[in-house]
Write a protein that binds this DNA or RNA. Structure first.
Lengths: 153, 153
DNA sequence: CGTGAAAAAGCGGCGTC
DNA sequence: GACGCCGCTTTTTCACG
């Protein structure tokens, strides 16, 4: 699916605030509200808009600690990779998971309420998984920027 | 502000899909729609709900490449740290930026349309900054999970 | 907090270009 | 095929009990 300038304008707004009314969006991009709606529907069906979510402050829910983990696995067969993906994916503490090239195989962004909780998670995810060769932990001290907006330009 | 089980239930749903109607949410948590609405408003004003956004597939916008970078800086004086924070923060390609402990000082999540674009960015951000000791790049091959859901349990 | 009414937004059909 | 216009339906929103 190919996106024109209208679609890009709509996405730019939706990435900032997806509760903006279709009429307001229409005024911003010079389109009628139904036209905006049709484009949003199309982009959603095409998978371009993947989800609509509320961003919640982790500290309010007691999950104050953000941790980055680089995971190196032993056997890089596609079956093992898929198994690892699925395991990371199902853990609620694992916020983001990427399969990467470089000195590691996976990069995880994890959110936990405390360091003991993280230790418990490492026991389950890494020490309890004999396909994990090693992992490196980075504890976030400051969240400088949490961007989700893909540049539309 | 203290959250009860109703609030947690509402947040759990909103983090998955913030377009869910208040009536549906109310049925799920055993509350009337206006009660749900009041709680959402309160949590938004309290900053617990920080934003409502559409998650967009970066590839659809031509920013197909996600890159993780660990940055190690030379001088860890607070002035240098702050300067680095500000520089990373202002770049639109830098989606996420955390100041971390461990073998690196910063972890960045970067989104670029191509590898040449990333090379150009490294020249500006890292090679052009004589306070950067070294950096390690991880190119994402697969986006397994882009979680934003803080566990509510 | 829940009920119920008013306002607004979402949604679909139809004619037009 | 996509647009805008016009109703209908759903949702949001705010009074009041």
């Amino acid at each position: 699916m190919v996106l024109d300038e209208f679609d890009r304008g709509i996405l730019a707004i939706l990435q900032r605030d997806n509760l903006t009314s279709q009429r307001t969006i229409g005024e911003a991009v010079n389109l009628s509200a139904p036209a905006v709606q049709r484009r949003i529907k199309k982009m959603t069906e095409a998978g371009i808009i993947q989800a609509n979510v509320a961003i919640v402050d982790p500290t309010a829910l007691g999950h104050a600690i953000t941790i980055f983990v680089e995971v190196e696995i032993i056997s890089e067969t596609s079956g093992q990779i898929e198994a690892a993906k699925r395991e990371f994916e199902t853990m609620p503490e694992v916020q983001q998971c990427y399969y990467v090239t470089g000195e590691a195989d996976f990069v995880l962004v994890i959110l936990v309420p405390s360091m003991p909780a993280y230790e418990a998670l490492t026991k389950k995810l890494f020490f309890g998984n004999n396909n994990v060769k090693k992992f490196r932990t980075f504890v976030a001290m400051d969240r400088i920027k949490v961007g989700l907006q893909v540049p539309t330009a």
